[in-house]
Design a protein around this nucleic acid. Structure first.
Lengths: 157, 157
DNA sequence: ATCGTTGCAAAGCATTTGCATGCCT
DNA sequence: AGGCATGCAAATGCTTTGCAACGAT
């Protein structure tokens, strides 16, 4: 009997298509990275490079850590993935949203106490972005780094 | 002849006083760290731990790198220094402003292209902070992490 | 005199790189 | 077939830690 081939989630096949369109090769390692990141995205998890490496190892044990690092870098360059720098110095990865292109789908804030990352609507930082552009000529990339603070659950009542 | 003893800048003596008041010892290593950070503050430089270590080594060569790291940590805990997480994963240090206490004197944004750090007025993020508090119950710490973007000089016209 | 601090050296950890081999296109 | 991607292993760079000696109060 053949194992029923599970079809790729739409976001994964979209990512694969864009990879091919960019003239990049689709290898087992890259494919595994995309599936892992997609799965995490759909549970609102934000995975670091090493976490992605660990999960890739479960799905595709032959893939070396170094390859995961190299692929995360190249996939971000190609625009298939995007990454967010968290305050605590960790970097986490997302599937890039094709529609919004590179210009930050949504922003993030991180709880300094429990480490949780909260997604916030893209327009949240609009007023700040406008002010920085006007006052400093600074073009804010709202999705590229997360601000720190304390989430509701971690505030002592 | 005696070398003229240069008096401490006010912010350094203030920091030393607060250190003593907190029951912490004032050692040559700590004193050197405070002077280095103060000097950088006054030229709007934002130094990382290793940069501070390098400058401390010039002033007080006997001070070991590990000691600088330990002191940066303890001085932040005591509230004499504050640190800001930059998007690129580096952490930079400031003399904490006694008046504003721990609640973020000013905010920062960093240019993703040239790395420069721009100080922005404390009230810049007020509207965002208010919105996050209202919508998510999230208490934003505006001074603790920097957002990324592109500064005026790095935008291709 | 006490106990926090320090220097030293070694460990730790995440990430990167050189090189020969392998595999996607 | 050709050239990018990979595995491997070693190197790198920053930061931390155990421990005995030191020194600020």
């Amino acid at each position: 009997v053949q194992p029923a081939p599970t079809p790729d989630p739409p976001r994964v096949s979209s990512a694969v298509s864009r990879l091919r369109a960019a003239g990049e090769r689709v290898t087992p390692a890259r494919y595994a990275v995309l599936r892992v990141v997609d799965a995490a995205d759909r549970t609102d998890e934000h995975l670091t490079a090493e976490e992605i490496g660990a999960r890739v190892a479960q799905v595709e044990p032959s893939v070396h850590r170094a390859t995961v690092y190299r692929n995360l870098t190249s996939l971000v360059e190609t625009g298939v993935l995007s990454h967010v720098h968290l305050g605590g110095s960790a970097t986490v990865y997302h599937l890039a949203e094709p529609a919004v292109e590179h210009s930050s789908g949504h922003a993030h804030v991180q709880c300094h106490s429990c480490g949780r990352v909260l997604d916030v609507p893209p327009d949240t930082f609009e007023e700040v972005a406008e002010r920085l552009r006007r006052d400093l000529g600074f073009a804010l990339d709202t999705g590229h780094a997360a601000l720190l603070g304390t989430c509701r659950d971690c505030q002592t009542p």
